[in-house]
Simulated scan of single mutants.
Amino acid sequence: METVMRFLIDRDLSGQPLSDEVQPENIGRRQFIRGTGALLGVGLGAGLLGHSSAWAQQPGGELLVSNWGGDWNNNVINALEQPELESKGIKILRDLAAAPARKTKILAERNLPRGSVDVAHFTDADAFELNQQGVLEELDYSKIPNASHLLPGVQKPYFIPFYISGVVLIYNKNKIKTPPTSFADLMNPEYAGKVGLIDQIYFNYFLAMGLLNGGSMSNAEPALEKLRQLKKAVQPRIYPSHQQAAAAMASEEIWITANYNARAAQWKAEGLPVEAAYPKEGAIGFEGGVCMPKRARNKDNAYRYLNAMLLPSVAQKIAKATYYAVPIDNAALPPEMAAIDFTPEQRSRINRVDLGYTAKNQAAWLDWWNKEIKV
């Protein structure tokens, strides 16, 4: 089953942007070179262990992590895996590839006594699909004590979020003096020829524009009329990737778009004169994170990984490296990073995607998008 678009992450810890080819969010990526790596270290602090008897033993052994490659994998190594696991005695092996190949591997191993993957990084959409196929472990939250700090609404029985964001409006503040307030502003005739949309996240536009016409996260049919109106009113420019949309924003080819809040923070940090505007309809939410296959060999170490992932120190590093918000309430991000996050009031109005509905309709939406909007 083809599911919701893949999302996220575009900077490494040195502050350099990634190419769009290595983003978790991108559809049509070239498959990453697969590889493994391992580092050894010593000890594991008792603060990571939680209260389960399964954690009484000293850490050690192996853990196979399935992940995207490129700088995203480097971010995870630097923020989480090396300081919290490898340096404390766990040998991490890495299976790096694009999401479709890694999903196929987990599905192929479903009937084996033991699989090869212990924890896997996916978007919420990919994890939903795998859970529907019955291959993911129902997590024991007593073994993930740091999960007590997860934000309301993000906890799932089979998936722990690691980074979160939402689709908002991003505009050139030098060209648009009155901040936009609604997804309807994308149809403003004053912006004709200056509106940019992005193929990679097209399904978000169905959900966003549907909200303008009585739709919901479980009913995007009203979006069709609004998208036709948008095309007629402003003739939007369609870009294949976030990177190309950023270049168009920099050159002032476009003045406004709808994209992840993290992109606004990133582009602003890179010197573009942009601001994010939270739409009155609410942002369209997104989560990326980690799940555990049922056939995992090293479940104790997998739980250590999930628990460490939710440490404030790890959250701070990931947020700084990627400009994406984090799903815990005790991250204590510094004031200068406030732009990457939503306020509590904005969080309360995030539209959480109905993953089942979106997965069922994505193929039809893509066909309609290509025939009605891109042409």
Rank of each mutant, 00 (worst) to 15 (best):
residue 2 E to H: 10
residue 5 M to I: 07
residue 12 D to P: 04
residue 19 S to K: 15
residue 21 E to G: 04
residue 22 V to T: 15
residue 23 Q to D: 06
residue 27 I to N: 13
residue 27 I to D: 15
residue 34 R to S: 12
residue 35 G to A: 12
residue 37 G to N: 08
residue 41 G to L: 09
residue 43 G to K: 10
residue 50 G to V: 05
residue 56 A to K: 14
residue 59 P to C: 10
residue 63 L to N: 01
residue 66 S to E: 05
residue 70 G to Q: 06
residue 70 G to I: 10
residue 72 W to E: 07
residue 96 L to P: 00
residue 100 P to D: 10
residue 105 K to T: 15
residue 105 K to W: 00
residue 106 I to C: 06
residue 106 I to H: 03
residue 113 P to D: 12
residue 123 T to R: 07
residue 125 A to S: 11
residue 126 D to G: 04
residue 148 S to K: 15
residue 149 H to I: 10
residue 151 L to A: 07
residue 152 P to D: 13
residue 156 K to P: 01
residue 157 P to G: 12
residue 159 F to V: 04
residue 163 Y to C: 11
residue 166 G to N: 13
residue 166 G to M: 04
residue 168 V to A: 03
residue 170 I to T: 05
residue 170 I to V: 07
residue 173 K to S: 14
residue 175 K to T: 09
residue 175 K to N: 15
residue 176 I to T: 13
residue 186 L to R: 00
residue 196 G to F: 02
residue 199 D to C: 05
residue 200 Q to P: 01
residue 212 L to R: 08
residue 213 N to R: 14
residue 214 G to Y: 04
residue 217 M to P: 06
residue 219 N to T: 12
residue 227 L to N: 06
residue 230 L to A: 10
residue 235 Q to W: 04
residue 240 P to W: 01
residue 247 A to H: 08
residue 255 W to P: 08
residue 262 A to W: 01
residue 263 R to P: 00
residue 264 A to D: 05
residue 265 A to E: 06
residue 269 A to L: 08
residue 273 P to K: 02
residue 277 A to I: 01
residue 280 K to T: 15
residue 287 E to I: 09
residue 288 G to S: 11
residue 296 A to V: 03
residue 299 K to H: 09
residue 300 D to T: 12
residue 307 N to H: 09
residue 307 N to K: 02
residue 312 P to Q: 12
residue 322 T to M: 13
residue 329 D to S: 14
residue 339 A to H: 03
residue 340 I to H: 05
residue 340 I to V: 15
residue 349 R to C: 03
residue 359 A to G: 09
residue 360 K to R: 14
residue 363 A to W: 01
residue 366 L to D: 12
residue 373 I to A: 10
